[in-house]
Write a protein that binds this DNA or RNA. Structure first.
Lengths: 148, 148
DNA sequence: GTTAATGCAAACGGTTTGCAGGGGT
DNA sequence: ACCCCTGCAAACCGTTTGCATTAAC
């Protein structure tokens, strides 16, 4: 569990974000926020809901969906669409990419700053104004390969 | 419309693929196949269905879905999952990437062979066995920017 | 007190499936 | 005559929405 200081920090951080956005800081939003920060995987709305239910038995799935949509707009989470999977949520807002295991469907973050900084070939950047690039590596993770 | 020779070529190509897979070459499968080859955008199942209905008024949407699933397994099409959009289908099986306009949601193919050939940093390739890489560039296309 | 946010339940929409009938170069 | 494939309709399931109640400010 989180320490009292962490708890206070999370509260202050979300309070600031809510104030800026002009929305209320509710108990549900705070708990979802905390759950996202703690999640080291890339949980679906449903999974977040299941995890929260242990602490908040009455929280409803639609509040989770609504809150995640709000957080997406506020730039607190990013939606992640993996083939044939439900929408996943990533609270890591740093520039990063993903490795997706085609066997267990697990998603791992990966960093490649040199690639992020590299210049796109002219014929590509002429397609339009490129705002972000997201690389998805598909393969089989070490665990599924039995190397771990 | 396609020339008789093209038609014959498409038929032969699909016939070969079906024979190898041990499935029948039906009228519906052939028409969906042709529609995919002609499509220069990245159509959804629904859009393919709408286009086919002009020629085949009785074709059903579930046949389109079933056929696309079959084609996906056979490696004739690739599914493409764009944020908040229905599943799109791409009959271009060459190694390539995508530029997605966040305004009009259009998807454009892009080629970057140097990137495809480049070596991944060691810490990334250690996540597992990487089989493919798919780059998604997000931005605003020239048309939406009013440059065209 | 005012207004936005929540919980409930029902709707929605894309996709899948069970089944009976039809077609296969 | 076999059996796969299709069309119809209904189910499915993740997600969204309308509405009355509750809680934040």
């Amino acid at each position: 569990m989180e320490s009292p200081e962490q708890n206070q920090q999370n509260f202050d951080k979300l309070k600031q974000l809510c104030d800026k956005a002009g929305i209320k800081l509710t108990h549900q939003r705070l708990e979802i926020f905390k759950e996202l920060l703690v999640a080291r995987d890339h949980p679906s709305a449903e999974l977040i809901h299941i995890r929260l239910q242990e602490r908040m038995p009455t929280i409803s799935i639609d509040t989770v969906y609504r809150t995640l949509a709000t957080f997406d707009e506020l730039g607190i989470v990013k939606k992640l669409h993996v083939a044939n999977e439900r929408t996943l949520f990533d609270s890591n807002m740093d520039v990063h990419h993903h490795f997706i295991c085609s066997r267990c469907k697990k998603v791992a973050d990966l960093y490649w700053p040199d690639f992020d900084k590299s210049t796109l070939p002219g014929n590509i950047s002429k397609l339009g104004e490129v705002n972000s690039r997201h690389l998805e590596l598909h393969g089989v993770c070490t665990e599924c390969l039995g190397l771990k």
